[in-house]
Write a protein that binds this DNA or RNA. Structure first.
Lengths: 253, 253
DNA sequence: ATAATAGTGTCTATTAGACAGTATGTC
DNA sequence: GACATACTGTCTAATAGACACTATTAT
């Protein structure tokens, strides 16, 4: 048998898991679903599911995103724009023991979305919620209602951690932070996205000068809003540039 | 059936494909193997093979690297150091039509190695060679002996292109360029790595000041060499730092 | 000597960050 | 009025890039 002969291959199941991030109440939050069956019954996990026989990997990720959040995928290429949400492949996890039942290889994807009203519990999972990533990652922490938070199922804590780090580093040199904003947003709202994702405070004046001075990052729409209070702020939408030059650099780190 | 029940999964084959890069004769080169059987018989392809039933993804990639190049993997964690070579996961390719025989999902890995004497043809492939990435990617080009270069098999041109772009961007903000160098190297040799990978010319004086001034990047070994001709150059080895601060920035791009 | 590479010093234009100060809303 | 946020201007320290210059080898 040649090693290139696929008629003698070990059997694998292939799934997609989703790290869906958003910014709510000044905190970076991820979508978590409660598992309704073993293994890890009752524990929180990342949304995901099997890749179908005729389905592309990014197509499967987009389908799961629709099922869990209602966000519709438009462009099947990667990166995928889905109702203003960004979807890209993150990494693949294939430890032989990561699922106790059988060999499952999971192609994790990262999705960034603006603040959504509430998760639809209509999908596969019994319940779903947005939780701050710190609460999901630090298993010794406590949830919003004070309950002890159990670690995420499978290797999902590792996947979530990798996704958060990808988002944190990618908004430095790309315009991806706008994926956390509604179609029209102010400089202050964009700054609060950076502050939530990086968990730092940024100087509003230098931030304003920097983002408005980076060509292709922001395009003024002409409108203004006072939804943040204070002096009316210009509204912008994301410009065509995907790579920022110069980049937005995280303080110290 | 629940979508979380892996007893009813579509059958997948999972492979690893390798983008093995090195710098030879001032050019960025990749390892290519000639396919000995259909499909794409006689065409050049990236080395790779099936993931075994009890094998980790990075373990499978390290095993393929050993089989093709003789580089031994030491640390099974990622990123893996293999005899001075760097190994990391690149991306996963799972288009339903990417292999005409059946559904194959390939987890591509990127390996960076110092200049090796010659590929061992002892592995699976009938023959193997180092080829400049430009020759492999531009299908209309011509090989070293003047023959018309056919495009790489499967979607391997896309995989190679993604791997090259990953390497080009990652040496900017990490110390990964040292993976292309022997254990001890001079600043000039490191500069020629950057010049080959980016295909640019760099000012030797500013480059020297920059790399020696970045903390943790280079550690002097005390020795010197004249293997490049001219004044004897200090020998260095890679320091502990993996993230460069400040980064090495590509000119213009 | 000539040529090659290694390494240091210095100047300048640009930039990042600190922060004063002004503009324009709501209460 | 106080107070919030938006936005502009200016100063300074640090940096990137250009390039003059010196050092040490081989031929």
């Amino acid at each position: 048998m040649s090693p290139y002969d696929p008629s003698a291959f070990p059997p694998f199941a292939v799934t997609v898991d989703l790290v869906v991030l958003t910014v709510r109440r000044h905190a970076l939050c991820a979508l978590a679903v409660r598992r309704g069956e073993p293994p890890f019954q009752g524990r929180w996990a990342l949304p995901g599911g099997f890749v179908r026989a005729d389905e592309d990997l990014s197509g499967a990720a987009a389908r799961e995103l629709v099922e869990e959040t209602g966000l519709c995928a438009h462009d099947p290429d990667s990166p995928v724009q889905a109702n203003g949400a960004h979807l890209e492949q993150l990494a693949t996890y294939g430890d032989p023991k990561r699922d106790p039942r059988m060999r499952v290889v999971s192609v994790a994807h990262l999705a960034l979305a603006p603040d959504l009203p509430a998760p639809r519990p209509g999908g596969d999972a019994h319940s779903a919620r947005w939780a701050p990533v710190e609460a999901l990652l630090h298993q010794g922490g406590y949830g919003r209602e004070g309950e002890q938070a159990a670690p995420l199922a499978f290797d999902h804590a590792q996947i979530l951690s990798d996704g958060v780090e990808r988002a944190r580093s990618k908004i430095e040199y790309s315009s991806l932070a706008t994926a956390f904003c509604p179609p029209e947003f102010t400089v202050g709202e964009l700054r609060r996205v950076y502050e939530a994702v990086w968990a730092v405070a940024l100087d509003p004046r230098n931030f304003h000068r920097k983002v408005t001075g980076t060509p292709g990052f922001l395009v003024p729409t002409g409108g203004t809003t006072t939804r943040q209070g204070g002096r009316p702020a210009q509204l912008f939408r994301a410009g065509g540039a995907t790579l920022l030059n110069p980049p937005m650099l995280r303080p110290d780190a």
